[in-house]
Design a protein around this nucleic acid. Sequence first.
RNA 1: UUCCCGGUAGUGUAAUGGUAGCACCACAGACUCUGGAUCUGUUCGUGGGGGUUCAAGUCCUCCCCGGGAAGCCA
Length: 563
Amino acid sequence: MSDNVKSGVDFIRERINKDNETGKYNKQVVTRFPPEPNGYLHIGHAKSICINFGIAREYNGRCHLRFDDTNPEKEEIEYIESIKKDVRWLGFDWGKHLYYASDYFQQIHDFAVNLIKAGKAYVCHLTPEQMREYRGTLTEPGKNSPYRNRSVEENLSLFEQMKNGELDEGACVLRAKIDMASPNITMRDPAIYRIKKAEHHRTGSTWCIYPMYDFTHCISDALEGITHSLCTLEFEINRPLYDWVLEQIGYPHRPQQIEFARLNLNYTVMSKRKLLRLVTEKYVHGWDDPRMPTLSGLRRRGYTPESIRTFAERIGISKVNSTIDYAFLEYCLREDLNMRAPRVMAVLKPLKVVIDNYPDDTVEWMPAINNPEDESAGEREIPFSNVLYIEQEDFSLNPPPKYHRLSPGKEIRLKHAYYITCTSVVQDESTGKITEVHCTYDPASKGGWTDDKRTVRGTSHWVSAAHAKKAEIRLYDSLFTNENPDDDSEGKTFIDYLNPNSLEALSGCLVEPGLEKAKPGDFFQFLRQGYFCMDPDSTSENLVFNRTVTLKDTWAKLQKKNG
RNA sequence: UUCCCGGUAGUGUAAUGGUAGCACCACAGACUCUGGAUCUGUUCGUGGGGGUUCAAGUCCUCCCCGGGAAGCCA
């Protein structure tokens, strides 16, 4: 690493570079991702995962996955499994470095005993209400607890009783003895151990006291040899306590906490509490509902791990509270899918087209390129016959200006097939609805091209009626109508901003026959429609696809602009 | 009201005393068998006042604005 600080390097890497220059950690970089197993991971966690695992990879270090499981009341094994799955899916590997804070309960306990012996911690019998009073306020200092000067022997004995389950839950806590007048309230004799007689998902009933986050996290970091403990801004105020604990316990390795801003995205909510509510109150179909910003939801929606990693990298790292445009995430997604998604044809809202001059006993298999962005993706063949379906939107009886699609007398190109010209339409006598469009085709245009200089502006996708497979296609839109669903001014809550049209399920869609062989999770570009992926609900009788994201649609934009 | 952290185009993010740059969005155009992709261009910015300096987004100072903090949550 050069002596000059490089342009474009964020403040965390800058710090690591400096540590490597000074040899602070012997050029080791060890980070960790420390989720609490009390919910599913979301896109905000993805940023943290990419930073922690990404930096470790970049500096040839390592990143630990550590479950911060110090609160048995809220944590469940289900969440542990989903978290592991999501981290792996994102493309990261903790190798053998899978840890649980609960692995350290004995050591953490021993450090607490030492702290008591050093006169730096005491058992406090103030009730929670009293503790709040004694803590003071943001503007006033706190008062010392009457239990603050208990003898070491008494504290040791009391803590032992807490540990042995001889005291009731809530009866007392172990507190660090720091400074009740500190301007930083975190330092006003914080609780470091509380009594909880709950069954822990890993340690069972071994413990009835559990260490608090502030005491657990820094010790876990030290024990694991973490060098750079990267966390979000809300822990900034806890940093003096992090350092205080490590200073007191005198452990030889000293990790350092560095904070960065958490990710905010517009049109979504990120709090675990709110996501949980969406699930439990059934506003969505589960944690992996494709409208959810959870990693399992994004995965089912069709987001690729690559695009999420790229996104995380591009948004950068800073200490500024910021909100990223959802459009930027979609940009990263489209960029990835554009290069990799096979193109196929699917008709969402079918309109029957009959080619009157095409023999009704003939089927031609037309070669179709799979991905114009990737020659190696090759070609496939799709069947063409005299009865087809095109998109309802691709035909208009009274076309608006600049409409380049099919209308009476107009000629368009059927992608990979022929030019067709509309000769007549069949309408339902009572409703006026167009039920069938009749066309003629130009045999000289086979493959979608002619040698004359004829220009055909419009190109439609289509499927052959006799060969197409039926499918259900789920069109997703933003879950919220408000850019900032967390905005609770005007007495509203995020529930009030739910988008009633966030899901439109279409049945009777028709897709080209090859899609029958797709597997859940496979992604495609449905030509001119967007990117879609096969949903796990899919069966051989009922193909199901989710719309991941639309293509940019300048025609829709034009129409919108013109009212 | 106290303490801490921040403030660069609409949104993100660079510039570490020396030309305010990049990306997304928006808009306009070119090109195109996807109204896709690609390419080109345009609008738009250092929160404010003082100060130091040949030179300030950057250093000093005062102010303004935003966020966080009073769990036996993490």
